[in-house]
Nucleic acid binder design. Structure first.
Lengths: 299, 299
DNA sequence: ATTAGTGATAATATAAATTTATAAGACTGA
DNA sequence: TCAGTCTTATAAATTTATATTATCACTAAT
């Protein structure tokens, strides 16, 4: 069976028009007719109901079932292409959310340079949501991800390496700066500067807002943590970040949040299932997991 | 891309001999050479290291990666064939372990006949382990399964419908027959008749044995529950079954086991992820889940 | 050295997919 | 109602892909 037929079929189910599918793949229309015919012959069952009253095709039950399987097949081939391409180029693409990057990268960089891995690694910085998607799609080999709960994607393999609390971040001269802890409900009056959508922080923030039946006043959003911290320092608004994201050099104060059963910032190392790790990628993974070389002498 | 090439490749990785792979698919040896060449050209990377010193080929890292993906692709196509074949024939294959069948089937049969589903359903009786595997492979559309713990296969979709305890089963005149409960450790002296391997009962039984550091004396094993019960009745040995498997007509006594944190017999309805349920299969599933038609009037 | 095994290559035959050209059907709007 | 414009389907020609046959080069064992 030719996987091209499956690709044609999937697009046909999606746009329900032979000619447009043909145009999409830069082939002629009869090609699509024939591809569908081949599939229907192979499975000896009708996949698509060509409608008498022209306009829209309908997908049969068998068609829906094949559609589901074909999507998996195509996705797997796509992953294979991505993965083999990376192996060929001896590149490792590592996803690192900026919030974690600032904290973790200096720590691991030493180890990576020591093992001569640094020049193979290409770091991709983005929000956890985007990175997560990129691991799934095969664009990344491995990623360090923050999430506001354990990871449950059945296509991915995730190992938790740390859990930290979220905290309120304020400048040193702020009214809250002297507080040990704060209840989220007390923050109704304050303006917030927040990370953009696509960061797991946002989901946690929403949790706090919802559980306190509040609508926090977010005056600015940015994907750039450094900018965010600067805005906090300049008093544009208070911040909501994991404690991990704030270092002493930032000259900021973190205040713990009291709310019970609050979500934690969970940091995981994520790869795909079915992914064969190149030796260098395995080394990188071990570094990220905090295994040092001595641990492995017993192998 | 032709999936035949992937099939050739997978077999080649497994048996590491071009000629034998060719023989396996009833094609000539250059066909395999060419298929591999096509794959290596498409991915522009070597997949198999043809060895100088003849004897064994070695699979490159890229080859291992493609192997992993190709296996998924082939499995998915196989599932599609099985599933579409079943849709074409308007058949539903239902897996039912004999232990559950005796208890459940009379109950659900009424509902199935009432809905006119009975003639489409083909029941397959076997141990839970075998049925589980058959759902994965696409040979069954749906199964009722017993397991000694929640189901965690990432390819399957399982819904728990009941949990029952395991119990010791003895004839009415047995010394244990008057006991309310018993500790598993007390059973060292007794002979057991047990289900064969492949039943989840065996795993639970092993749990009790191991946690009590015992080696129970199993004098006979059979996959046939009716025979098992007869042997218990005739005093060949005592039995270990879920309480559910023993009905009043059996004329047997069940004795609860005291051991704390013991495994339970979990009954689930299992289908595959990515499986598109035919209306009749959905109806069957609803019956198994104990949804009656009235529940759905609100849809 | 001969033989039996490995896989690779080239020429050829066969099978399969795509294009071109065209037809048939359904709807639209003058 | 009839031309025009969408559909998808069909047939023949062309191109492309795949398999076979025959043969070669290599290695290891007898």
């Amino acid at each position: 069976m030719n996987t091209r037929d499956l690709e044609y079929f999937v697009k046909l189910v999606e746009i329900k028009n032979f000619s447009q599918v043909a145009a999409h793949f830069s082939v002629t229309q009869p090609t699509i007719t024939m591809a569908l015919k081949r599939l229907e012959d192979q499975f000896t069952i009708q996949l698509i109901q060509r409608d008498q009253s022209h306009g829209h095709l309908t997908v049969t039950l068998a068609g829906e079932q094949l559609y589901a399987r074909a999507q998996v097949v195509i996705a797997q081939l796509h992953l294979a292409r991505e993965e083999l391409g990376r192996i060929r180029d001896k590149k490792i693409r590592l996803g690192l959310p900026p919030i974690l990057g600032n904290y973790y990268f200096p720590k691991i960089a030493r180890a990576l340079i020591g093992q001569g891995l640094m020049d193979q690694i290409e770091t991709v910085e983005s929000g956890s949501d985007a990175l997560f998607q990129q691991v799934r799609d095969g664009q990344l080999d491995i990623a360090l991800l923050g999430s506001s709960g354990p990871n449950t994607d059945s296509e991915l393999q995730a190992t938790q390496i740390a859990r930290t609390a979220f905290a309120i971040v304020v400048p040193k001269d702020h009214v809250l700066a002297t507080r040990e802890t704060v209840r989220f409900a007390e923050l109704e009056q304050f303006a917030f500067v927040m990370l953009s959508a696509g960061f797991s922080h946002v989901r946690a923030f929403d949790w706090f807002a919802q559980h306190n039946q509040m609508h926090p006043n977010v005056v600015y959003r940015t994907p750039d943590v450094t900018m965010l911290k600067n805005m906090i320092k300049q008093g544009v608004g208070i911040g909501f970040l994991t404690q991990l994201a704030v270092t002493p050099e930032d000259d900021l104060v973190t205040v713990k949040i009291e709310d019970p059963q609050q979500p934690r910032f969970v940091i995981s190392v994520v790869t795909r299932k079915q992914q064969v790790l190149a030796p260098a990628t395995q080394q990188l993974k071990d570094v990220l997991l905090g295994k040092n070389k001595d641990d492995e002498k017993n192998d």
